[in-house]
């Protein structure tokens, strides 16, 4: 699988959708290709994340520690991105990612990603736009939920 396929995968990532192809090629070039065997951990809940993973092939479980032990909450597959928040800010991983089959990933490290953003401000603006849209949606959802909650309490 060559860089062109990686670029295609990057194009499908919502956060990177508006970014021109040339920049995505550069991003792909400076990122690392990794192979994880079944059962191998891509990242662990609680660790400080320093990279995002784009699944190029295979499937991985998203696992969260609960009081009753680890629990798989989702499965990611080809062209999904996991851990993208980690390359934008310093937060602990909210879940572990464990390879279910053999998983090929494109690993984007935070340092390289930030360097690219500082180099190409238009890319940063694009990402900001996507994040703002997401925030807007979250805020609206939250308002809805609050409204419902208030209604429920008033009626209660």
């Amino acid at each position: 699988m060559s860089i062109d396929q990686e670029v295609e995968a990057l194009q499908r990532v919502p956060m990177l959708r508006g970014i021109e192809k040339g920049k995505l090629r550069l991003l792909a070039f400076i990122s690392e290709r990794m192979v994880y065997g079944p059962g191998e951990t891509l990242c662990k809940q609680g660790d400080i994340g320093d990279s995002a993973f784009i699944v190029l092939d295979g499937e991985a479980d998203i696992v969260v520690d609960t009081d009753t032990g680890p629990k798989t909450v989702a499965v990611v597959g080809t062209n999904d991105i996991v851990g993208e928040i980690a390359i934008l800010c310093d937060v602990p991983r909210t879940a572990s990612v464990i390879a279910k089959t053999e998983v090929h990933t494109l690993t984007i490290s935070k340092d390289q990603f930030l360097k690219m953003m500082s180099e190409f401000p238009e890319m940063t603006i694009e990402i900001m736009r996507v994040l703002a849209a997401r925030l807007e949606r979250t805020t609206r959802d939250l308002a809805d939920v609050r409204g419902e909650l208030a209604r429920a309490t008033a009626n209660g």
């Binding site: 040339g22 090629r25 550069l26 070039f29």
Partner: peptide, 20 residues
């Protein structure tokens, strides 16, 4: 060709260029 395409508009000071 790839290098020219990828790095032609990356500024001199940026480490990406010297590293990659």
């Amino acid at each position: 060709e790839t290098m020219v395409e990828l790095f032609a508009d990356v500024s001199d000071e940026n480490e990406l260029l010297s590293t990659y």
